[in-house]
């Protein structure tokens, strides 16, 4: 790639702009509330891990993380396993209504969660799934399944059709071909699709909060508890925020080599 003039400066400034607010959050999470409110310090002068200890020892706090991870995991597994065969079908075959179906799937990715909040509440209360991780996981399928189909379709299309034909000639049955040959070939695509399902389920709040009340409360809803009669507990809020960044950062590290292609939905 040809470089542009001053590229190091532009890039450094932008990365600093991205990191500075995160640094500030990390900085605050290691301070006591007294230090946060009384002085402006660029780094914690009296570093403390009390905020983190509070979260790890209070069940109502750490169960929030477990609840969030539960529905994210369920959602990712459902999305990928449902989307894989569909992606193959869209990539290889022409069938009645295929284009309309594909567009309809995509249009759900574009539906504002705010529109669905109340009807989902009614629906999941009616079938008795309200306040379980399943409700949130199924609700998130609304936008994650279409996305997974979209990404996987791009990756399946990059596998030459001759491979399918050869496998069938060699006597592979369809399920055996799918699991033994196709899935290993698009392993990076499956990883990328799983990453995106994780990402969008992890960052979404409105539906997750509407569909839970006590037992399956996600961490994002627990965080609102830091407002109390004694004022905001800033240190605790910052520590909880930092802990929500960590799973994302770990996942990015695993897919870093495929991430750019993934963001182009497997279509570059």
């Amino acid at each position: 790639m040809h470089s542009i003039p001053g590229r190091r400066i532009i890039l450094s400034l932008f990365l600093i702009f991205l990191l500075l607010p995160i640094y500030w959050l990390v900085n605050m999470s290691f301070k006591t509330n007294g230090e946060i409110v009384s002085t402006m310090t660029l780094w914690p002068h009296k570093p403390t891990i009390a905020n983190y200890m509070h979260i790890f020892t209070d069940e109502s706090w750490y169960s929030g993380y477990i609840n969030s991870l539960k529905y994210v995991a369920i959602n990712t597994v459902i999305s990928i396993s449902f989307a894989l065969p569909a992606a193959y079908a869209f990539s290889r075959y022409r069938f009645l209504g295929d284009k309309h179906l594909f567009f309809w799937l995509l249009s759900n990715r574009m539906a504002p969660p705010a529109v669905y909040a109340l009807p989902f509440f009614n629906l999941y209360s009616a079938i008795g799934l309200f306040d379980t991780p399943w409700a949130v996981a199924l609700a998130h399928c609304l936008f994650n399944v279409p996305l997974a189909v979209w990404i996987l379709e791009g990756f399946v299309s990059s596998v030459p059709r001759e491979i399918d034909e050869t496998a069938f000639l060699d006597g592979y049955s369809f399920p055996k071909f799918f699991v033994k040959i196709l899935m290993p070939l698009i392993a990076s695509g499956i990883g990328v699709a799983a990453f995106f399902c994780f990402m969008f389920s992890w960052v979404e709040l409105l539906l997750a909060r509407t569909l839970t009340s006590v037992d399956a409360k996600p961490i994002s809803a627990v965080m609102t508890r830091t407002v109390s009669a004694a004022g905001m507990d800033w240190g605790l809020l910052a520590a909880a925020g930092v802990l929500t960044i960590i799973p994302g950062a770990l996942v990015i590290w695993f897919v870093r080599n495929y991430i750019a292609r993934g963001f182009a939905l497997g279509r570059v």
């Binding site: 991205l18 990191l19 995160i22 992890w202 979404e204 709040l205 809020l237 950062a249 991430i259």
Partner: peptide
Amino acid sequence: CLVILALPLLIPWNVVGTIWQIFGRPDI
């Protein structure tokens, strides 16, 4: 670069709000 760039995308949206709520406050 890729990891740092992707970082803001993986932060829950309410935490993004919280980060900027704190970052922009005149007192803290």
